[in-house]
Design a protein around this nucleic acid. Structure first.
Length: 467
RNA sequence: GACCCCAUCGUCUAGUGGUUAGGACACCGCCCUCUCAAGGCGGGAACGGGGGUUCAAGUCCCCCUGGGGUCGCCA
């Protein structure tokens, strides 16, 4: 059975890069009817926070990724780790090192000055003397000093390292007794049964370290998939400056989670020419062997396009529900469905959608000057006034089609075209020269308010004309 | 600096020795049209460079160049 996991360290919000590897892990487990586990890597007491944990879990909930079983917190497993550290110590595969941080820093500096790779020199590896007083030791693993460490990466293929090039006796437990990342990852993945690890590219150089730990314990080495980073549009590392990197920021900006997921799955992975993937299709089609080897640049336009796609597809109920988050509640509006249909093709995000709705539902409080200048000329205003007079005798107008028939008849009698009147009506309805089809807008607003809004505009024009 | 990884349109990518190098986003043009969108149709746009291997190379090999990652008592 395929067992994957997502193991963030709670130092902040959930990053979209993290979401992508989580998605891949989730999908690969689902595709294989396996398990997707969730673990919080909070061994660094100083840098994690409960808020960060909550934020990450909230983001997971928003996008709909569900993990199997309880969340595992590493901070609650220190005793377990200690016993495994002890095993290594007992087996002579790890040892205590009494070198101070200052000494270490000095050593590293020397090495870099000599243009060498900074690394621990193993001075306590075979130490048998009396330890210096007042120094709490760290525990270091006895790493191989020769040979080749290689593994077959599921996305990159075979990766080889010379032990001498990369390894030193790295620390597995700090002087305060707490275990370090590379150690706990191996213990937990092994104990939790994780056998397929999908994670960021930045971990390839940790992999050989972890492999020697797997071997030291005799654990089965999992299959690794290292997925390339997401770069910014300039091809550099993606950062806050490049737009949203916090997953929840996408919610606040009005993106649908399925759009974000679709965007992310397709960024660095492909299934032929297919662009649109429902959540079900993702689970059926995802295969890590099609993950691209090279890093990909974040491209907001594609996300926006996907978002518009999913807004067009969404059910009325769904949209009404989502819109509530942006303080627009149209659940009780009689024309809610027409309202949605009139606007869904025009909104790139739910934020825009909410604004467009408000623009129609609330009578304009001001009028776009340029639009007024261009369309409410003496002639234009005259036609509108004329229209209002006739409209007042048509109290039964209800549907868009009825408004249309009425309006077209009105225009035909006067030898006018729709374009001679449409913009004036639009300004009266929404205050600007941009809106959905005016007949839909008229139906949504309703006869009484339509009359009111035209009256208001005419009044406004007359009074400003006088002054 | 050492080690590792990567390299097709501006961007996301298809491509596994023989293709007019395909699709999508973005862009441009046309159509539709009451505005703005949406939609339809069409267009420009790529194999980083140099050597090999081969009848044949975007595809395989080498070098160069360029980009990225890692070198913590962080994860």
């Amino acid at each position: 059975m395929v067992v994957t996991r997502f193991a963030p360290s709670p130092t902040g919000y959930l990053h979209i890069g993290g979401l992508r590897t989580a998605l891949y892990s989730y999908l690969w487990a689902k595709k294989n009817s396996g398990k997707f586990l969730f673990r919080i890597e909070d061994t660094d007491l100083a840098r994690n926070s409960k808020e960060a944990v909550d934020a990450i879990i909230e983001a997971f909930k928003w996008v709909g990724l569900a993990h199997e079983g309880e969340v595992v917190y590493q901070s609650e497993r220190f005793d377990l780790y200690k016993s495994y550290v002890q095993k290594l110590l007992d087996a002579g595969k790890a040892y205590k090192c009494y070198m101070s941080k200052e000494e270490l820093d000095a050593l590293r500096e020397e090495q870099s000055a000599r243009k060498e790779r900074p690394h621990y020199d193993g001075r306590y590896r075979d130490f048998t003397g009396t330890p210096p007083v007042g120094v709490e030791p760290v525990i270091r693993i006895k790493a191989p000093t020769s040979g080749v460490i290689s593994f077959v990466d599921g996305v990159k293929g075979e990766i080889c390292f010379n032990a001498t090039d990369i390894l030193d006796d790295f620390i597995i437990a700090r002087s305060d007794g707490t275990p370090t990342y590379n150690f706990v990852v191996v213990i937990d993945d092994a104990l939790m049964g994780v056998n397929e690890v999908i994670r960021g590219d930045d971990h390839v150089s940790n992999t050989p370290k972890q492999i020697i730990l797997y071997e030291a314990f005799g654990f089965k080495i999992p299959k690794f998939y290292h997925v390339p980073m997401i770069l910014n549009p300039q091809g550099k590392k993606l950062s806050k400056r490049d737009g949203a990197v916090d997953v929840m920021e996408y919610k606040r900006e009005g993106y649908l989670p399925e759009a974000l997921l679709n965007f992310l799955i397709r960024l660095g992975w492909s299934h032929g020419d297919q662009e649109i993937f429902s959540f079900e299709q993702m689970q059926a089609l995802f295969d890590p062997s099609h993950i691209n080897k090279s890093a990909s640049a974040y491209n907001q336009e594609k996300l926006v396009w996907l978002n518009t796609h999913y807004i067009k597809q969404a059910s009325y109920e769904r949209l009404i529900e989502e819109l509530r988050f942006f303080d627009v509640d149209i659940s009780l509006h009689v024309k809610k469905e027409l309202l949605i249909d009139a606007l869904r093709d025009r909104a790139k995000t739910l934020v825009e959608f909410a604004n467009l709705i408000q623009q129609i539902l609330e009578a304009p409080t001001c009028y776009d000057e340029k639009a007024v200048e261009k369309f409410l000329t003496a002639d234009g205003l005259g036609v509108l006034e004329d229209y209002l007079v006739v409209l007042k005798g048509e109290k039964s107008l209800l549907l868009a089609s009825e408004f249309e028939t009425f309006t077209k008849a009105f225009l035909e009698e006067r030898g006018l075209k729709l374009k001679d009147l449409a913009q004036a009506i639009r300004i009266a309805m929404v205050g600007s020269s941009v809106s959905p089809s005016i007949f839909d807008v008229l139906e949504i607003i309703g006869y009484e308010d339509v009359v009111k809004r035209i009256e208001t505009l005419i009044l406004f024009q007359r009074s400003s004309g006088e002054s």
